[in-house]
């Protein structure tokens, strides 16, 4: 255990793809579902899966999950502190 090892915490088999959305995409998303950011599910900024990304409060993360029922499912989470 003396040797140190570089661990990439975003590479776990259960981690889906996390993508930061740009302003235009966010606007499209919010108007498509007619919701505000407050109504979206949340994700902590220090979450290991997004810790490396340059994010601020209120950014929206697009998550592409593998799903048994639809192969790919898209989920959104808003970054909170």
């Amino acid at each position: 255990m003396v040797e140190t090892k570089n661990i990439d915490y975003t590479k776990h088999v259960l981690t889906p793809k996390h993508i930061k959305m740009d302003e235009k995409e966010i606007e499209e998303l919010l108007s498509k579902y007619n919701i505000s950011k407050k109504q979206l599910p949340r994700i902590l900024r220090e979450d290991p899966a997004i810790a490396e990304m340059d994010l601020k409060k209120g950014d929206i993360i697009k998550i592409i999950r593998k799903s048994e029922t639809t192969k790919e499912a898209i989920y959104y989470r808003v970054v909170i502190d």
Binding site: Y9, L14, P16, D47
Partner: peptide, 11 residues
Amino acid sequence: DVFGIEVARNN
């Protein structure tokens, strides 16, 4: 704690 919320959900 180690891998994040999405991994917890899958777990």
